[in-house]
């Protein structure tokens, strides 16, 4: 499907985007945030639904669509425990949690804002690197089943294919209380099928 050079480019895109996003997150929380080398995954929809365990695993997620020269979807997915830990770093929200409903509106809106900042940092870095316009939508929040959330990123792809190409960058932090080893924090970038050629051409590589 892709040659090694193209895979490396996609990985580098994840590196640049998520690198910038973790710097933004780090400044926002005033904590050290580290990032693992991003992975480019080519997955069936079932594998996508079960990327972090069962399809009905509860997660906290930010979702936005982007348009412009590049189109596609982006998710910032965290375990509910990790999302709670992040929110609790912010002033006045130290008692908030996403582990059990009901969730406070303040916490949801803080999480949305956090998502907004990190996702825009990701896409801004990408746009500058590729010299292509990327216009993000207002991000939306859902605290729900991973499978139910991630399908929004598969709708456009599903019209042409039964596989998704996802650039997955994991971030971690040293103040983790999340002992169960489930997801720490993941930036998932799902460009629409037509956008890959644009990414490669902008860097002078043909598909």
């Amino acid at each position: 499907m892709f040659n090694q050079m193209q895979l490396d480019i996609l990985k580098e895109i994840g590196n640049i985007g998520a690198g910038n996003a973790s710097t933004a997150l780090s400044q926002l929380l005033n904590k050290k945030i580290e990032m693992n080398v991003p992975m480019v995954r080519i997955l069936s929809f079932d594998e996508m639904m079960e990327l972090y365990g069962s399809a009905d695993k509860k997660v906290a997620s930010i979702f936005l669509q982007f348009s412009g020269d590049l189109t596609g979807n982006m998710f910032f997915v965290l375990s509910v425990e990790k999302a709670s830990t992040f929110i609790q770093q912010l002033p006045g929200l130290d008692q908030c949690s996403f582990v059990l409903p009901p969730y406070s509106e303040m916490a949801i809106s803080a999480f949305q804002e956090l998502g907004n900042i990190v996702a825009s940092s990701y896409l801004t870095a990408l746009s500058e690197f590729l010299r292509l316009s990327i216009i993000p939508s207002v991000p939306a929040v859902s605290i729900d089943m991973f499978g139910a959330i991630i399908t929004y990123g598969l709708i456009e792809i599903s019209k042409v294919s039964d596989h998704a190409i996802v650039i997955d960058a994991e971030i971690k932090d040293p103040f983790s209380k999340d002992k169960n080893g489930f997801i720490k924090g993941h930036f998932l970038l799902l460009p629409d099928p037509d956008s890959f050629q644009k990414i490669f051409s902008s860097l002078g590589v043909n598909q």
């Binding site: 079932d46 399809a55 499978g147 139910a148 929004y152 709708i155 599903s158």
Partner: peptide, 23 residues
């Protein structure tokens, strides 16, 4: 039953699908 999938079952078997969102 996976996503974009279908299955037939007869009792005592059951059918299950996980993580329906907009689907």
């Amino acid at each position: 039953v996976g996503i974009a999938d279908m299955k037939i079952a007869k009792a005592p078997d059951k059918l299950r699908t996980a993580g329906l969102g907009s689907c």
